[in-house]
Nucleic acid binder design. Structure first.
Lengths: 187, 187
DNA sequence: TTCGTCATGTAATGGGTTACATGATTAC
DNA sequence: GTAATCATGTAACCCATTACATGACGAA
């Protein structure tokens, strides 16, 4: 894919979470990825043979189309499997979870449980803080804390469900007893 | 308050949301606030007369104690009342809400309704995206979207409750019919 | 006296945004 | 032909983090 198109895709896919990435951030990032050897310019793509590819397929210009390299794929898998401290924070966990279909069950369970621990710790901190400060704080601050605590509690329950499903060999979803994951190809 | 103490307070109060602020960020920020005239060094505080103040009160060193200035208070009120686009995003709204006790009802309603519009828009985007992409996406991505959508729906309901309470002259909280807000002093 | 905590700062680095600059192509 | 969109990039700026450096004070 080329930069401009990538930005559009990201904008629609992450539009609910964040503003579109700026060009001043995108192009340097692509250069860094290329320098690291994780992506490379796809010379074949200039000839315009991508049938069924996303967005306008006719007529081109000096667009720079990139392809992930073998080392890139390896690095990507390593990133998905790694367990640093920021693997379990809000953003890190979201990214890992979004690629769970490309991860093995062991890794998925490790990450889900790590995330659960993280959120449980946060939850306990909020409970203590709420109990300790209930008298001294105004109604709005209190309400904000309550709302945050509720969100933590709900996420823990959600993670619990996912962990149970994962252990019983099921994909997530409403149905609890379906066949053990046929291995869908990535779109 | 002085920088070191401020960092500690922030760490306990925001500990659930983010890591502690770094010194390399804190002290330059204080300098910026001072340069802008919003805070000033509190010369009286060096003499150590702050009885009942937080944390160790005996023995001092070259600590720099700051005080908010009149212009600082004014600026702060202006910030609380302003309605930019980032007033309604996750962080901006959280900050404004945390200081609702220092805001008048009109402003509170304006911000709550703006936030509701923002979250509703996000919710609609996610609904469309879920309906559109349900077939092409793997179970995990789908589950993530569902979870995000649910969070949006819940926040809208929460905001709705707050707006109703606000319109009927009540503070937030479990009880729906209490006296119309006695005006609690800030802690 | 030495270790831990209090307390303030600077320098290097990283990376994101805004604003700007350029040019090709498409639709009217 | 001209406006909008596609497409890539650079420079200035802002600000956060990390790592480092300093020094006072209290307790063991």
């Amino acid at each position: 894919m080329h930069g401009y198109e990538l930005r559009k895709q990201l904008a629609t896919k992450l539009g609910a979470f964040r503003a579109a990435i700026s060009y001043g951030s995108l192009y340097p990032a692509l250069r860094r990825l290329e320098t690291s050897g994780w992506i490379a310019e796809d010379v074949a793509a200039v000839g315009d043979t991508d049938v069924g590819a996303p967005s306008p397929l006719t007529s081109r210009r000096g667009r720079v189309v990139y392809k992930i390299t073998a080392e890139g794929k390896e690095h990507f898998q390593a990133l998905l499997g790694e367990a640093g401290p920021h693997t379990y924070d809000d953003i890190g966990f979201g990214v890992h979870f979004a690629f769970f279909a490309r991860t093995d069950r062991e890794t998925r369970l490790r990450i889900l449980e790590g995330r659960r621990r993280t959120v449980e710790t946060r939850r306990e901190g909020m409970r203590k803080s709420l109990g300790r400060a209930a008298e001294r704080l105004d109604a709005y601050t209190l309400e904000l804390q309550r709302h945050g605590l509720e969100a933590c509690e709900r996420e823990v329950r959600w993670l619990e469900e996912l962990i149970v499903a994962e252990r019983s060999g099921n994909q997530p979803g409403r149905a609890a007893d379906t066949k053990p994951e046929p291995g869908r190809p990535d779109p």
